Simulated scan of single mutants.
Amino acid sequence: MKFNSRNNSKKLSRNIVLSLCVIGGLFTSCSSDDDNGSGGNAVVTPPTYQFERNGIGTVSYGGQTSRIQMGNEFVTALKDNTKTELELDGMFTNTGNYFTGIGLNDSGKNLRSKTAASSDYFSANSTDANAIKADFDGWIANQVNDVFPNWNTDAVAGTAGKIQEAGGGSTRYVNAKGLEYNQAINKALIGALMTDQMLNNYLS
């Protein structure tokens, strides 16, 4: 029994030493990903991206770029209490020349047509697609008709108006139940337009 116990101890010691050597070798053989010393393969970010094969463009994303710019202007306009429902609707549908960005009014693109419009989920489901678009129409109307008239009113339960974040933070403009329509629209565009198009149309 003593002989076996001594053998087992030696094997255990040998295994521990071997394991430590292997782990030490792994640590010493790894080099920093940030080390691009002489001869390293440094990645240089180009000022613009070109997706080309044999000098011919293979990717078209002008429509997506236009809609992102439209979305930025539209969401900003939702916090301008001088805007009318006609103007905000016009920004959602790109009718009426309400954008200031170069080429947006004449781009032939708009936010509404690609909202809840992916091939996977909505091409054969106009009922849900129309219901989602109707939500946007309602939020726009309510921002103009409920929130804008109470822009300088302190919001309380049951009354739309402004409310400041605790500790002197930014001022929010909410409906009678505390909902920020501009944020509802902003976040819904991220899901029903951007994410839906990316995952359920282009990448599906």
Rank of each mutant, 00 (worst) to 15 (best):
L20H: 07
E52L: 08
I185A: 01
N8V: 14
K10V: 13
W139I: 11
S66I: 06
D135F: 04
G108I: 10
K177D: 13
L18S: 14
V59N: 02
A77L: 07
R112G: 07
S9T: 12
G158A: 07
S113R: 06
G101S: 13
T82R: 04
L86D: 15
N97K: 05
N81V: 03
K11N: 15
V22L: 04
G138D: 02
G101L: 10
R112V: 11
C21P: 03
T93Q: 08
G169F: 00
Y173N: 04
G96E: 05
S31N: 10
G39C: 10
C30G: 08
E73F: 15
G108P: 11
G158Y: 00
V43A: 15
G71K: 05
N186K: 12
G161Q: 05
T171D: 03
G25K: 11
G103F: 07
N142T: 09
G90V: 07
V44R: 04
P47H: 03
A134T: 10
R172T: 14
M70Q: 10
D33R: 08
T76A: 15
N54C: 00
T127C: 04
M1G: 11
K187W: 10
A192L: 06
G158F: 00
A176C: 06
A124I: 12
N186T: 07
F27W: 12
L18V: 11
S204R: 13
A155M: 02
S126G: 15
S126F: 15
I185G: 00
L12Q: 13
M194T: 09
A124P: 03
S66T: 09
V75A: 03
D34E: 10
N125M: 09
P47I: 05
S123G: 05
D135H: 13
F74M: 03
A141Y: 00
Q64W: 14
K109M: 06
Y61S: 15
K11F: 13
L78N: 01
N94D: 01
N175T: 12
S107K: 07
V59A: 03
T100H: 09
E85H: 09
K133S: 04
V174S: 01
G101M: 14
Y49H: 05
A117R: 03
Y181H: 01
G158W: 01
G63L: 02
A157Y: 04
N94P: 07
E85S: 13
N36I: 02
T58W: 06
P149N: 02
G62Y: 07
M91C: 00
A192V: 02
T45S: 14
G101T: 15
A157G: 08
S113T: 08
G25H: 09
F51V: 04
G25R: 03
